[in-house]
Amino acid sequence: QIFVKTLTGKTITLEVEPSDTIENVKAKIQDKEGIPPDQQRLIFAGKQLEDGRTLSDYNIQKESTLHLVL
């Protein structure tokens, strides 16, 4: 699982696999929060994550925290 922290300070927990794409993660966030993926920007280690890449591409491991910017 990974954590996604929103600007409001809320933390969302997501069940993911390293092979999941960023697009996939955004879809999971939409399921939980109702935020359309095209409004979501995910930041990890100061980098904006691209939809077509996977979590493992960015070396995002379990218990990692991503930041969600709208």
Rank of each mutant, 00 (worst) to 15 (best):
G9F: 04
S64M: 11
D31S: 12
D51H: 06
S56Y: 11
I60R: 01
I2K: 01
L66R: 01
I35A: 04
L66H: 02
P36L: 07
F44E: 01
L49G: 01
D38H: 15
L7A: 12
F44G: 02
S64D: 15
L14N: 00
N59V: 04
I43Q: 07
I22Q: 02
G34T: 03
E33D: 05
G52M: 09
F44Q: 03
H67L: 13
K5M: 13
D57C: 04
S64K: 04
F3Q: 05
N59P: 03
L42R: 00
T11D: 04
I35Y: 14
F3I: 06
V25A: 02
K28L: 11
E63H: 13
K32N: 05
Q48C: 15
G46P: 01
N24W: 11
S56G: 10
V16G: 03
N59H: 10
T6S: 06
N24M: 15
I12H: 03
P37T: 14
E15G: 07
T6Q: 07
G34K: 06
E50G: 04
K47H: 13
L14G: 00
I2P: 00
S56N: 09
Q39R: 12
I2D: 00
I22S: 02
I29F: 03
P36E: 07
K32A: 12
Q48A: 12
F3W: 06
N59L: 07
I22G: 02
E63M: 11
G46W: 05
S19T: 12
L14I: 14
Q48N: 12
Y58T: 02
G34C: 07
H67Y: 14
I60A: 02
K28D: 02
E33Q: 06
K28F: 06
V69T: 09
E23F: 14
L70R: 09
A27V: 12
I22K: 00
S56W: 09
Q61S: 11
K5N: 06
L70Q: 09
R53E: 04
D20M: 10
T11H: 06
L70Y: 11
S56F: 11
N24S: 14
T6E: 04
E63S: 10
K26S: 02
L14T: 01
D57M: 06
E17Q: 10
V69P: 01
Q1L: 15
E63K: 07
K28Q: 10
V25P: 00
E50P: 03
A27G: 10
T8F: 13
T54F: 07
Q48L: 13
I60G: 01
I43L: 13
K28S: 04
T54H: 06
R41V: 15
S19M: 11
Q40T: 05
E50A: 08
H67D: 09
V4E: 01
D51Q: 05
V69C: 14
L7E: 14
Q1K: 11
Q39N: 09
N59A: 08
Q61Y: 09
I22F: 03
E50V: 08
F3H: 09
L7G: 11
F3L: 06
I43E: 08
I43T: 10
L42I: 07
A27R: 15
D20W: 09
N59M: 08
T65E: 07
K26C: 02
G46Y: 05
S19Y: 14
D38M: 10
S64F: 09
E23P: 03
T54N: 05
T8L: 11
Y58W: 02
D57T: 05
D31A: 14
E17N: 11
T21L: 10
T54R: 11
K26M: 06
L7K: 11
T65N: 04
D38T: 10
T6V: 10
T54K: 12
L55K: 00
R41F: 14
G52E: 10
I43M: 15
P18G: 10
K10P: 05
G46R: 04
